[in-house]
Each structure stands twice: as structure tokens, then as C-alpha cells.
Amino acid sequence: MVAIRNEKCLVNSMVLLRLFIGWHFLYEGIIKLYNPDWTSYGYLASAQGPFRPFFIWMTNDSMIGMADWGNKIALVFVGLTLLLGIFEKWGAIVGALLLALYYLAHPSFPWVDQLNVEGSYWFVNKNLIELVACVVIYQMPTSRYFGLQRIFSKKEVMTHTK
């Protein structure tokens, strides 16, 4: 179906895409991890669109702590897996799920108020694009080419050959 003219270029581009997304997630996670005042409360409490009640529910006292920590841990997990190149498929799935939550909390639907957004969007916004990029990473893993997985897989091969 697809004719790839230069497979090496594609793999390199995929590595770059994976690293940048990992970079982005890790930085977001670290910023939150090191700031004890950070909370997702504002983002959740101002949620818009059809899933608003769900996000509002997450702001109640018993949930908000879990939501905050879940978000921080998930961000760092995605960042580490994609940057280091290990368990990248899991990283891509978790990343896509997180982005889906971010998108649904503040969807770029024309009938919904756009709060705290830079740029102009009509249904598709940057969260959605990054989500699709995570799906692509899931389809085309590159950690055996660039990443810790390369070392582990070699090791496996080496132990098998012994």
C-alpha cells in the first residue's frame, strides 16, 4: 500500500518524533513534580463540553489528589519510555490516553467556550495532533533501532546464541 522511498529517513524521522514527544511529556511532568503548589484543579474545574460532569467529579476532595499524582506519574512515565526507548508501546498508549483526557476536558468544539488556549482551533487542536502522533509511534516502534531496547534485544539474541 505504501511505497517508502527511503526507509532509513523514515526511521530517523520516527525516532525524532518519538524523542520530541517524550521530551515534551517529561518536561511537563518534571515541572509539576518539582512544584508542590501545582494542581490540576483549575484545568478540571473549568472543563467544558459533554464530559464536564466527569471532570468536575474529579475535582472533589477525595479525587483531586489521585488526579494530580496520576497525571504527574503518567507524564513522567510517557516521557521516560519515549525518550529512553523502552516499553515505548506502553508509553504511546498512556500518552494517547492522557491526551484524550486533556482534549475531552477542553474540546475544540465551536459551540464550547475556549478557555486558556493559545491559537485558533476548529475541532482539531494540538492535543489531538499529538495524540495521533502517539498512535503512529505505537504502530511504528523504533526503540530497537534507537533506545535501550536495542541493547536488551541484542542481549537476548546473544544469550540465545550461547
Partner: peptide, 17 residues
């Protein structure tokens, strides 16, 4: 190629923190 991600991770982590 196997360990190339580690310095990147270190840099991002350090910058964020």
C-alpha cells in the same frame, strides 16, 4: 544508539527541575 536517550532524559529532567 542504545543509550542515546539517557543524556537527553538527563538534560530535560535537569532543566525542568
Amino acid at each position: 544508539k542504545g543509550l542515546g536517550g539517557i543524556p537527553l532524559m538527563g538534560a530535560v529532567w535537569w532543566a525542568g527541575a
